[in-house]
Design a protein around this nucleic acid. Structure first.
Lengths: 107, 107
DNA sequence: TAGTTTAATCGTAAATCTACGATAGGCGAT
DNA sequence: ATCGCCTATCGTAGATTTACGATTAAACTA
C-alpha cells in the first residue's frame, strides 16, 4: 500500500514532488554536480566519481533521465550524459515557487 | 540493501537530498501549501484538507518536522503546526545552490 | 570474425516508504 | 473521576527503493 495517491493531489504538487524525488538521493545530487563540473559527461566517468557499482549508477541515471533533469546521447560505444537545461529550469521554478509560497508563515 | 550509503557522499549532498526527500511526496508539498495559505495551522484542519487518513497525515507531518521544515507547538488539546522559516530557508539555499551549479552545462 | 569495451537490463535481497485501522495518551469539559 | 476530542504511535500489509552481480546488447578494434 505504498503507492502514492497521485490523482488525489493537484497536478503541480505531484510534479513538484516528482522533481524533489529525483533529487532525494545523495548519489543523484552528486551526479548533477559531476555533470556540471566535468567537461566530459561520459557514463563511465560518472561511475568512477561515485562510490557505487556501475549498475547502481546506471539506475540513478535512468531516474534523472526519466524526470527530465538530464539527457543522454549515444557517442559511439559510450553514452554522453548531460544536464537538460529545460528540465532543470522547470524543477527550479516549481520548487522556487513552493518556497516562495511557504515563506508566508501563518503563525 | 536499500540503505543509502550516506557516509560515502559529501555532507551537503546528503543534506540537500534529505530536504528534497521531505518534499518528494505530493502530500507533504500540499501540507506546506496549506500551512502557508491557512491562518490556522491546527493538525485537524490539515487532515481535513488532505485526502488521507489522520494517521497518514500525522506521519507526513512527522517527516516534515524531523527535517526541520515545520514545527509543532501544543495548543491545548490540539497541535498548531507551522512552517519553520529557518529550515525552509536552509532548504531553499541548498537546492538553489544545486540548481545554480547544475546550470553550467558541460555539453 | 573474434574479442574487448561500454552501458543497460535482469534478477534478487534487504531496507524503506506509504497507508490505514487500532490503540494510547493528553487535555478540557461535564 | 469520567467522558469525549485530538493527535501520536503501534502494528501491519503491500509497494517501492536501493544496491549489486550477472547477463545482454551495441559498437569499436584487431
Amino acid at each position: 500500500m505504498a503507492q502514492t495517491k497521485a490523482d488525489l493531489f493537484q497536478e503541480d504538487e505531484v510534479l513538484c514532488a516528482s522533481y524533489a524525488k529525483a533529487l532525494s538521493h545523495p548519489a543523484r545530487v552528486a551526479i548533477l554536480k559531476v555533470l556540471a563540473q566535468r567537461k566530459s559527461c561520459v557514463c563511465g566517468d560518472i561511475v568512477d566519481e561515485l562510490p557505487l557499482a556501475q549498475a547502481t549508477v546506471s539506475q540513478h541515471l535512468k531516474e534523472l533521465k526519466e524526470v527530465g533533469l538530464i539527457q543522454g546521447t549515444i557517442d559511439g560505444p559510450s553514452v554522453c550524459y548531460c544536464i537538460n537545461p529545460e528540465g532543470l529550469k522547470k524543477a527550479q521554478t516549481l520548487l522556487q515557487s513552493l518556497f516562495q509560497t511557504a515563506a508566508t508563515c501563518c503563525c
